[in-house]
Protein backbone atom coordinates (compact mmCIF):
# COMPACT_ATOMS: atom_id res chain seq x y z
CA UNK A 1 0.00 0.00 0.00
CA UNK A 2 1.49 3.31 -1.07
CA UNK A 3 0.48 6.35 0.94
CA UNK A 4 1.09 9.91 -0.12
CA UNK A 5 3.13 11.04 2.83
CA UNK A 6 4.84 14.34 3.45
CA UNK A 7 7.85 15.51 5.39
CA UNK A 8 8.65 18.80 7.13
CA UNK A 9 12.10 19.65 5.92
CA UNK A 10 14.37 22.42 7.19
CA UNK A 11 15.70 24.47 4.27
CA UNK A 12 18.83 26.63 4.69
CA UNK A 13 19.90 29.47 2.40
CA UNK A 14 23.47 30.68 2.03
CA UNK A 15 25.35 33.59 0.47
CA UNK A 16 23.55 35.15 -2.53
CA UNK A 17 20.53 32.86 -2.12
CA UNK A 18 20.17 34.04 1.50
CA UNK A 19 20.29 37.67 0.39
CA UNK A 20 17.73 37.11 -2.40
CA UNK A 21 15.31 35.16 -0.21
CA UNK A 22 15.78 37.49 2.75
CA UNK A 23 15.97 34.73 5.35
CA UNK A 24 18.48 32.18 6.57
CA UNK A 25 16.14 29.23 6.87
CA UNK A 26 12.58 28.03 6.63
CA UNK A 27 10.56 24.82 6.92
CA UNK A 28 8.86 23.38 3.83
CA UNK A 29 6.40 20.50 3.62
CA UNK A 30 7.51 18.29 0.75
CA UNK A 31 6.21 14.92 -0.51
CA UNK A 32 8.32 12.16 1.04
CA UNK A 33 9.22 10.79 -2.37
CA UNK A 34 10.31 13.57 -4.69
CA UNK A 35 12.79 14.23 -7.47
CA UNK A 36 15.71 16.57 -6.86
CA UNK A 37 14.61 18.67 -9.84
CA UNK A 38 11.13 19.09 -8.34
CA UNK A 39 12.53 20.19 -4.98
CA UNK A 40 14.44 22.93 -6.75
CA UNK A 41 11.48 23.90 -8.96
CA UNK A 42 9.20 24.25 -5.95
CA UNK A 43 11.77 26.45 -4.23
CA UNK A 44 11.97 28.64 -7.33
CA UNK A 45 8.17 28.95 -7.43
CA UNK A 46 8.02 29.88 -3.76
CA UNK A 47 10.91 32.33 -3.97
CA UNK A 48 10.74 34.14 -7.33
CA UNK A 49 13.75 36.20 -6.34
CA UNK A 50 15.94 33.10 -6.72
CA UNK A 51 15.25 32.98 -10.47
CA UNK A 52 18.25 35.24 -11.24
CA UNK A 53 20.58 32.48 -10.03
CA UNK A 54 18.40 29.44 -10.82
CA UNK A 55 20.90 28.05 -13.33
CA UNK A 56 23.68 28.08 -10.77
CA UNK A 57 22.06 26.56 -7.70
CA UNK A 58 22.55 23.11 -6.34
CA UNK A 59 21.18 21.43 -3.23
CA UNK A 60 22.53 19.42 -0.37
CA UNK A 61 20.58 16.99 1.78
CA UNK A 62 21.85 16.30 5.30
CA UNK A 63 25.24 17.79 4.41
CA UNK A 64 25.78 15.84 1.17
CA UNK A 65 25.48 17.34 -2.30
CA UNK A 66 22.53 16.19 -4.42
CA UNK A 67 22.97 15.68 -8.13
CA UNK A 68 20.38 17.94 -9.74
CA UNK A 69 21.20 16.85 -13.27
CA UNK A 70 20.48 13.18 -12.67
CA UNK A 71 17.03 14.12 -11.38
CA UNK A 72 17.02 11.33 -8.80
CA UNK A 73 13.95 10.35 -6.83
CA UNK A 74 14.88 10.69 -3.18
CA UNK A 75 13.18 10.00 0.15
CA UNK A 76 12.67 12.88 2.54
CA UNK A 77 11.70 12.56 6.16
CA UNK A 78 10.72 15.10 8.79
CA UNK A 79 13.82 16.62 10.35
CA UNK A 80 15.91 16.36 7.19
CA UNK A 81 18.04 19.39 6.32
CA UNK A 82 18.17 20.72 2.77
CA UNK A 83 20.48 23.57 1.82
CA UNK A 84 20.45 25.85 -1.20
CA UNK A 85 24.04 26.07 -2.41
CA UNK A 86 25.02 28.88 -4.80
CA UNK A 87 28.44 28.65 -6.51
CA UNK A 88 31.05 28.22 -3.79
CA UNK A 89 34.02 30.55 -3.39
CA UNK A 90 35.99 29.50 -0.32
CA UNK A 91 39.75 29.65 -0.03
Amino acid sequence: MELNTFANVRVLFFAKSRELVGEKETVINYPSRISTRRILNELLERYNSLSVISENLILSLNEEYLDINDDLIINLKTGDELAVIPPISGG
Binding site: K16, S60, A83, I85, P87, S89
Partner: peptide, 17 residues
Amino acid sequence: PIWKKEIYEDGSNSWKE
Protein backbone atom coordinates in the same frame (compact mmCIF):
# COMPACT_ATOMS: atom_id res chain seq x y z
CA PRO B 1 30.57 25.06 1.05
CA ILE B 2 32.11 28.43 1.92
CA TRP B 3 31.32 31.68 0.11
CA LYS B 4 33.04 35.03 -0.25
CA LYS B 5 31.75 38.44 -1.20
CA GLU B 6 34.14 41.09 -2.47
CA ILE B 7 33.43 44.57 -1.17
CA TYR B 8 34.82 47.33 -3.40
CA GLU B 9 35.98 50.84 -2.58
CA ASP B 10 32.96 52.36 -4.37
CA GLY B 11 30.57 50.47 -2.05
CA SER B 12 29.50 47.84 -4.59
CA ASN B 13 29.99 44.13 -3.96
CA SER B 14 30.03 40.78 -5.70
CA TRP B 15 29.63 37.12 -4.63
CA LYS B 16 32.48 35.16 -6.15
CA GLU B 17 32.61 31.74 -7.83
